[in-house]
Nucleic acid binder design. Structure first.
Lengths: 261, 261
DNA sequence: ACACCTATTGCATAGATCGCGCAAGAGGAG
DNA sequence: CTCCTCTTGCGCGATCTATGCAATAGGTGT
């Protein structure tokens, strides 16, 4: 019975997440309990900050968050989603992976969060958005690098982060980038960022750079990270074949993610 | 008159956006109109999809202030707000402060965020909610401890966090707690948490424990943190004088935060 | 200046929802 | 088996909401 109450609250939360809105009457009918019980559940979930109460029902807070996240991703988010899905499929149970900052890796974090069947994965991240996505994912062990929070990129940099990285290693590292270049590697706004990226990549068995087509061949900024010998570029199908050939010629493995559904 | 109605609706929307939450009573008083009028405004804005109606008020859909909103919905938030305000006034420009995890310290983070006149403050935190609040605050230097993210308390623990703490010191440390006891100190769910708290407190010139009245004298769990010689308990006015005397007798400085406006 | 029209406001009433206290029931621990 | 805790259903008073109606303010055309 106590179990039933917990599962019902979880279910309420899930329904509210998917539909964004739930009424007391509907919930009462769906779970075959009195409206009083539903009300009590809702007040509970509200004080836990997971829902907001409305007149006659409740509204999801997390759903709004995800919506705004999608907005923030905004640009090319279908491509990013496809890339994230491809990346997710590389991860195997029990592995320790590094998640870089950036919107594409945040999409990967969302994939990790929603696939609760993957067990024992430890995700190390320097990105705040990725952390937020995984904060409530019980099936993922989240390790955060410390350091100064860089407001613009919403990720950590600095000596604290570097010190933290130097104490661990990763099965796979999924890197974001402002732009990717076949010869120069990945480009960021500051050298602090590229240095941290280099450290992470040095300590990873497999390095993947997640970058949708628009980021290829650009030189948005002038700080470049030295790439490891072997790495994989993961991009979407709209990428220019000529550009991709430049990567392949340099020994970079290229993966094309296909959007589905 | 028609103009007044439009500007009022805009203003309502603006207020809801910034504070995340607005009550019919407050709005009615603020604009000096009857609750009926406010209700009509709210239904209008709701059908326009700009707001969501709650019981006795409205909630912003653009989740700009998700953190503060979650706080407002939570338990005893008036007391926490008063305590946070008192704590905020202790902080002086240029200081480096430690912000523990927990909802009360998250409220302090909100104070720090909203007072943009305070300059040069460096906030070191192990709490995810505090980080989110300060993520977009350009006037605050945010340093995050790394470590394992503990899902329940939304804060970092573990050796990475401890290693990070051991490399810095603080002018002031603002600690949260699940419960506070005059003899035993502050209580948490696990010894990992208390150990990190001890380390932070050891390296701070001034230690404040932020705990509203309901947390005093309780023993919610069985992991206790050893307190430094001198520390300040910050609580609200509804605290039992007998309990407070127990703290004073042990040399603990006691501060009572008064709720205002 | 005057009349007219529309949007808005305040008030009162009726209906719906909410919060709380109380007693009963359903597991879990010893 | 008994005790204990958490949960549930029910009823009541309180609060909030929705709606109709009359009054008012502001804009408009003559």
């Amino acid at each position: 019975m106590k179990q039933k109450a917990l599962t019902r609250r979880d279910e309420i939360l899930r329904m509210a997440m998917t539909t964004g809105l739930a009424s007391v009457e509907e919930l009462s009918a769906a779970f075959d309990v009195t409206p009083s019980t539903i009300r009590r559940d809702l007040t509970r979930l509200t004080t836990q900050g997971k829902l907001a109460r409305t007149y006659g029902g409740a509204i999801s807070l997390a759903n709004n968050r995800e919506a705004s996240l999608t907005q923030r991703l905004g640009e090319a988010h279908e491509a990013k989603r496809a890339i994230a899905r491809w990346a997710f499929e590389q991860v195997e149970a029990g592995e320790t992976i590094a998640l870089d900052g950036g919107s594409t890796t945040a999409a990967l974090a969302e994939e990790l969060r929603s696939h609760t069947d993957l067990s024992g994965v430890c995700a190390v991240t320097a990105g705040l958005t990725a952390m937020e996505s995984l904060a409530h994912a019980d099936h993922i062990d989240v390790l955060a690098l410390g350091g100064r929070l860089r407001a613009l990129s919403q990720s950590f940099i600095g000596s604290l982060a570097e010190a933290a990285v130097s104490r661990m290693s990763f099965d796979r590292a999924f890197m974001g980038a402002d732009s990717v270049h076949a010869e120069r590697g990945i480009c960021e706004a500051s050298l602090d960022q590229t240095r941290l990226k280099e450290l992470i990549m040095e300590r990873a068995d497999h390095v993947y750079v997640l970058a949708h087509a628009a980021k290829l061949g650009q030189s948005a900024f002038h700080a470049w990270a030295v790439m490891p010998k072997h790495w994989t570029l993961v991009t979407d199908q709209s990428a220019d074949p000529g550009l991709l050939a430049a990567f392949s010629d340099r020994g970079v493995e290229v993966a094309l993610a296909t959007a589905l559904s």
